[in-house]
């Protein structure tokens, strides 16, 4: 399944590295990435491909939550359909 991973927080060293390292470890492929500084906050969006049979979404979401705490940012993951549903006919 495709999901959108968003990382928001105070800019500092190692955020991209931390998140991508975690994803690589879990064998989750990053298919697109966009990053900006918005109102002084580091904002990164990644489109990722998750293999359904290998990953429990609830566990992944919790692990990302913990990773966010370590890195001092907020990391959220949502399945892509929500964005399509709200903005496309």
């Amino acid at each position: 399944m495709k999901a959108i991973l968003t990382t928001i927080g105070k800019d500092q060293v190692g955020i991209i590295a931390g998140v991508s390292h975690f994803l690589a470890e879990k064998e989750i492929n990053i298919s697109d990435v966009s990053q900006t500084i918005m109102n002084g906050y580091f904002t990164m969006m990644m489109m990722v491909e998750i293999q359904n049979n290998k990953t429990d979404f609830a566990v992944l979401s919790q692990q990302l939550d913990e990773l966010g705490k370590q890195l001092g940012v907020e990391i959220k993951i949502r399945r892509e359909e929500i964005y399509d549903a709200m903005h496309q006919l």
Partner: peptide, 10 residues
């Protein structure tokens, strides 16, 4: 990836 729409939803 349409980042504006993602931002709006979030």
């Amino acid at each position: 990836m349409e980042t504006e729409k993602i931002k709006e939803t979030i």
